[in-house]
Design a protein around this nucleic acid. Structure first.
Lengths: 238, 238
DNA sequence: TCTACAACTGATACGTTGTATCGAAGTGCG
DNA sequence: CGCACTTCGATACAACGTATCAGTTGTAGA
């Protein structure tokens, strides 16, 4: 190695460290990004922040991911690896497990339900594997391919829709430092009483006054899910 | 009015126009913003772009909306005014109308399904009105308040989830200038064949080869919706 | 062991975004 | 006519995604 005479030895000694090679990899990037998003939400995901967290220059990750969209896809694939579905069950228990496990995944990673649209189309290996599992559970029941896919996508749509709402509420509570449903409703009370004072929402008002399971999100999720599964069973004769 | 001697008459005549007061209003802002988003997608919504479209300085709209979040809520309320649900129907036809009309609204305004999370909690008058209509349709059937709300939210979750996917696909096709399902699949073919070559997704592969209704999104939507409505009917004995 | 090459990272910079700030212009009331 | 108040314009700033390019390092061939 020839020393570059334009920079003195001392100057070069001042420079960081020789930086061992291969400090970055899609794996390390995904893990770091997921950690950030889990701890501080999706809006904390910044190429600069990610680089800082990895102890690297802002543009370094671009050698491994083509941009932020790519990064989000990588994150999705990374966490979907944890979505292992049990085998050997009937179609109904399989779809139920799919829904419940997906919900748990989205509760562990609230940002999953807040991804921008293009990240929702992520056709990554681990996402494909989940679809394959679900479709396989629906195979051999006499359904045609279109119906199988629609049933799977229907359940998936319900889960995503429900969790999109649930995690938006939870994100809002986090921003406002609210730690219970009562605190949330207290925060929203002025707006709500203003609405109710118009007298245009009597049924809604009745709900607000008499409901007793406003915070039982699991019960709400299961009710809708069971309805959907019931309907699949009766309508498709399976 | 005293003329300011530091600026000549001609100089002041050169200046735009005296700018009649009250050129801005939440109404005008909402209409302009919706027009932009309808034509060019949600990412075209920029405070600067909005101001330009309104013929006004970048910061002017901030006198009427507190920020971008507020603007999005205003847009949601604006388009939800068009979501009129027919009255005098049974619970099932009402929920079906709710779902179908919401889908149509989201097809007319693709950005509705791509809103950031906080905008999905918009408790605006026109959104409340839709909820009230749906809840009223479920009233008097012997359901408790919690169940009524969960059923409504369940249907809403399904619709949002399904449309989130559908409009993400449609947005992707728009970006890539793809105008048919065949073109879309052609675009995705390299990725898909790569996945299929792993042999890990046999059921998925069977779907790709034999399905005949891949582009019939309305049929897919209705199948899931009918399953859900069937399930609600049987599980809740209504 | 040396050398050339390819892969990788650092530094710098540009255009855009949301929005804070403050002064100017117009409006309604005394 | 004067004055407080609302509404708008101009300017500015920090943070973002990312293009570009030079510098650095590991590695393959001689």
């Amino acid at each position: 190695m020839t020393t570059d005479k334009s920079t003195s030895l001392w100057e070069r000694l001042e420079r960081p460290s020789p930086a061992p090679r291969q400090v970055l990899s899609p794996q390390r990037i995904a893990t770091a990004a997921v950690a950030i998003a889990d701890a501080e939400g999706l809006e904390a995901i910044t190429m600069r922040r990610l680089a800082t967290e990895l102890g690297v220059a802002p543009m370094a990750p671009y050698r491994h991911v083509s941009g932020k969209d790519d990064l989000l896809e990588l994150m999705v694939d990374h966490v979907y690896a944890d979505l292992r579905l049990p085998g050997g069950l009937g179609w109904r228990e399989s779809l139920r497990a799919l829904a419940v496990r997906t919900r748990e995944l989205m509760l562990d990673h609230r940002w999953l339900a807040q991804l921008p649209p293009q990240a929702k189309l992520a056709l990554t290996p681990n996402v494909m594997a989940v679809a394959e599992r679900a479709l396989a559970a629906l195979d051999g029941l006499g359904l045609d391919a279109d119906t199988m896919m629609s049933v799977f996508r229907g359940v998936d749509a319900y889960v995503h829709g429900a969790m999109s709402y649930e995690s938006a509420v939870s994100a809002f509570m986090g921003e406002q430092s609210l730690s219970s449903g009562d605190e949330l409703r207290n925060e929203l009370a002025p707006l709500m009483t203003w609405h109710m004072r118009t007298g245009r929402y009597p049924t809604y008002e009745h709900y607000l006054r008499t409901a007793t399971r406003k915070d039982d999100t699991r019960w709400q999720f299961d009710l809708g899910l069971d309805c959907l599964l019931d309907g699949i069973a009766t309508r498709l004769n399976i």
